[in-house]
């Protein structure tokens, strides 16, 4: 379980996060929803200790993050973080060198699934393919938790579909996923849990399934209620 407790973050004078708390369970897909600039990416970075917090605490399976945590949790940012002159093969080689949890078999599976040529250079890839490589490098790690920042933004429709398919496959099964997005259309049906963010605070944290079953509302309906209040 990832526990985010009362985290606060300022950029200069401006408070971005004013005490955000939520949890994300293993085996569930948790979605952080909010308009651009609400601090979704900052939360993911903070979980990975990529940016300092002014207050609050984040625990992963009950412990604060340390170097060993990176074999248990991975972050797929909204752009690929590999050197552009590397080929996909070299990028996979790099991951294999540094992560014991790298799963080459799964990587190969993903290569086939996405129809990527491993000898092509990262800098020569199309936007969609770059996003796929980004996903590949993250998902081929045998980690318990995957954080994804806007995996669908700025990507063509077909690639979007392919990526969305990943979420229903065994590649995601049993893992805890936190995903951020500002438009949930494509993936609404995939979500287990939704965290709505506004003005630096969690406005609502609810189970998508419960909302559907108990109140007969879709995620969009709940969002509409919250934001139009």
């Amino acid at each position: 379980m990832i526990e985010v407790k009362e985290i606060e973050k300022r950029y200069g004078r401006k408070k971005i996060l004013k005490g955000v708390s939520f949890t994300a369970e293993k085996g569930e897909i948790t979605c952080l929803i909010g308009i651009n600039g609400v601090g979704k990416t900052t939360i993911l970075k903070a979980i990975m200790a990529l940016t300092p917090l002014h207050k609050g605490q984040i625990l992963i399976d009950g412990k604060p993050i340390d170097k060993h945590s990176f074999e248990k949790i991975t972050f797929i940012p909204d752009s690929l973080t590999m050197l552009p002159h590397m080929t996909i093969n070299e990028a996979m080689e790099f991951m294999k060198d540094f992560y014991t949890c790298w799963n080459q078999k799964r990587a190969n599976e993903l290569l086939g699934f996405f129809r990527l040529d491993p000898s092509s250079r990262i800098s020569s890839l199309s936007k969609g393919n770059t996003a796929k490589v980004n996903l590949l490098l993250g998902l081929a790690l045998d980690v318990d938790y995957v954080l994804m920042d806007e995996p669908f933004s700025g990507i063509d429709m077909f690639s979007r579909e392919e990526i969305a398919n990943v979420f229903t496959s065994h590649l995601i099964e049993n893992r805890g996923v936190i995903i951020t997005t500002h438009e949930i259309g494509d993936i609404e049906h995939l979500l287990d849990k939704v965290v709505l963010l506004d003005d630096g605070l969690v406005t609502k944290e609810f189970s998508a399934e419960a909302a559907r079953e108990n109140e007969g509302k879709s995620v969009i309906d709940v969002m509409r209620e919250v934001y139009q209040k």
């Binding site: 990176f70 752009s79 973080t81 590999m82």
Partner: peptide
Amino acid sequence: IGKNTFIYRLLMLPTSR
């Protein structure tokens, strides 16, 4: 610098920073 900010990768390596 650039859009492929490699520092993400470096800081997320499972080794002492």
